[in-house]
């Protein structure tokens, strides 16, 4: 077998394992080196199999398309909505319902808030809004939300717990300032922002797939 014949034979038997190939390779270090190199290349190729990561925007585009095409079902996103046949009581329904009411009130009230310093009859127009928001927030049960997060996406429970603690602290601080000075516009605004932030937190869990 010549060197050229050996190379031709490698097309069918690339390991150089036939008797004729072995006989040639024993006497030809040049071809032996060639076969060794080709085997190294073939073996190293496997390392390229999953060597690269696509950018995060690839999944974002896929998810957007799936939602647009209705392949990701809306009910699947609303994982916090309790099932009528499930173990949730009527209070379970109060959670999303209260969040919706809260968000609606926030949207309706927010644009009509007077600028700082505008007082009507010595009392701002906002306490009534605050009261409405507070009443709505009262219907949001943090424990229900956390329990659902724990069930649906346990990895996010710590994050939701932290976010809820922060927003509750925010509400408490704003109310404390408002109690000290009921005409404090900044305190009113801070309280409304805090309520809306809490509503947003619930909305994220309700309306989005838990990331």
């Amino acid at each position: 077998m010549t060197c050229v014949e050996l190379q031709e034979s490698l097309i069918e038997n690339d390991s150089g394992g036939t008797a004729a190939q072995r006989a040639h390779l024993r006497d030809c270090p040049h071809c032996a080196g060639l076969v060794a190199d080709l085997l190294v290349i073939a073996c190293a190729a496997g390392e390229l199999r999953a060597a690269h990561e696509p950018g995060p925007h690839v999944w974002n585009s896929i998810e957007t398309s799936l939602r647009r095409e209705g392949i990701i079902k809306p009910f699947a996103r609303r994982s916090l909505l309790p099932s009528l046949t499930g173990s949730w009581s009527w209070t379970g329904w109060a959670l999303p319902a209260a969040a919706v009411v809260l968000i609606t009130i926030g949207i309706l009230v927010r644009p009509h808030a007077p600028p700082p310093g505008v007082v009507t009859g010595g009392v701002t127009s906002q306490p009534a809004s605050d009261a409405a928001l507070e009443a709505s927030v009262a219907g949001l049960n943090d424990n229900d939300l956390l329990a659902e997060v724990a069930e649906q996406a346990p990895a996010l429970q710590a994050q939701y717990t932290e976010n809820l603690r922060n927003v509750n602290d925010y509400i408490r601080d704003a109310k404390y300032s408002l109690d000290a000075n009921p005409n404090d516009e900044d305190a009113h605004r801070a309280l409304m922002d805090a309520y809306q932030e809490k509503a947003m937190l619930f909305e994220m869990a309700l309306d989005r797939s838990l990331p």
Binding site: L48, R49, V58, W59, E63, I71, I72, K73, A76
Partner: peptide
């Protein structure tokens, strides 16, 4: 199959590197 967003993403996460690497190569 039931339209669960998290399931789609989990399947993507599991296979994305191999698919992307194939496309890139």
């Amino acid at each position: 199959k039931q339209g669960d967003a998290q399931a789609f993403q989990a399947l993507y996460d599991k296979h994305k590197r191999r698919v992307y690497s194939l496309c890139l190569r």
